[in-house]
Design a protein around this nucleic acid. Structure first.
Length: 218
DNA sequence: ATCCCGAGGG
DNA sequence: CCCTCTGGAT
C-alpha cells in the first residue's frame, strides 16, 4: 500500500492542533458572549455586529433583566430597546431586527429558537454568520461563523483564495471535522485579534509561522 | 484614523 | 457589488 502522506492535510491538521493548544477550551468556554439561553445568545450575537464582546456583555444584563425571553421581549417598545442597546451601535437597526425576529419566533416557533440554518437565516436580522454562532455555541451543531478575522486568516493560512465569507465557509467545511468547526472559528478570531492582525501581523510571535505560507519568515 | 464576531437594501 | 447603519475604545 504505502500511502503517500498527504502533506497538505497534515499541515491543516497541525494548524488545528496548535490552535487548540494555544486557545484551549470548549466552544462554550471560548465564546466570550454571556448568555443563558439560545434566545439570549441570538440577541447578544445580533448586538455584537461591529461592537466588542465586552460592550455587548455590559449591555445584555440590563436588556435581559426585563426582556430575557421571546415572550418578554415582545412587550418591549422600540424606543425602550433602542435606549437599552444604544451604546452597541447600529441601535435602530438592531432594535428593529430583534423585535421583528422575536415576532417570528413567537408566531412560527412557539417562542423557541430553531436550530437549522434555513429557519435561522430566515429570521429578520439573522444572517449566516449569526446563524452559525447560534448553531455552534448554543446548540452544539456544526457551524463555522466566518467574520473578518476568519476570512483574513483563512486566506493567509492558505485555506482558501476566496474572499466571499460564504465561499470561505464552504471550503473549510470540506475538510474541518464537523465537531471542530465552531471551535476553529473562535480560535481564528482570537488569533486574529491578538497575533495575526489585519495591518501588521505579528509573525514573530505566531505559533503557526512554520506552517503559514504568508509568514514573513516563510 | 481604524477597529470591533454583520445584515439588508438598492 | 456597493452602500448604509452607529457608538466606543485606541
Amino acid at each position: 500500500m504505502g500511502t503517500v502522506p498527504n502533506t497538505e492535510s497534515h499541515r491543516r491538521r497541525e494548524i488545528l492542533n496548535l490552535l487548540d493548544r494555544a486557545y484551549p477550551g470548549t466552544v462554550q468556554e471560548l465564546c466570550a458572549l454571556s448568555f443563558e439561553t439560545p434566545f439570549q445568545l441570538l440577541v447578544a450575537t445580533i448586538l455584537s455586529a461591529q461592537c466588542t464582546d465586552e460592550r455587548v456583555n455590559a449591555t445584555t444584563p440590563k436588556v435581559f433583566e426585563h426582556f430575557g425571553t421571546a415572550q418578554e421581549m415582545i412587550d418591549a417598545t422600540p424606543e425602550e430597546l433602542e435606549s437599552l442597546i444604544y451604546s452597541t451601535g447600529f441601535y435602530k437597526n438592531k432594535a428593529k431586527n430583534i423585535l421583528a425576529m422575536t415576532r417570528v419566533l413567537l408566531s412560527k416557533y412557539d417562542g423557541k429558537v430553531p436550530c437549522d440554518m434555513e429557519s435561522l437565516t430566515a429570521l429578520p436580522g439573522v444572517g449566516r454568520k449569526t446563524a452559525n454562532v447560534v448553531r455552534s455555541v448554543a446548540f452544539a451543531q456544526p457551524g463555522l461563523p466566518v467574520d473578518t478575522h476568519v476570512g483574513r486568516l483563512s486566506i493567509r493560512l492558505g485555506f482558501t483564495k476566496e474572499k466571499d465569507p460564504v465561499k470561505v465557509e464552504m471550503e473549510l467545511l470540506q475538510w474541518v471535522p464537523p465537531e471542530e468547526t465552531g471551535g476553529l472559528s473562535l480560535r481564528l478570531i482570537l488569533h486574529g485579534r491578538s497575533i495575526c492582525l489585519a495591518r501588521k501581523p505579528r509573525c514573530d510571535a505566531c505559533i503557526l509561522v512554520d506552517l503559514c505560507p504568508s509568514s514573513r519568515f516563510a
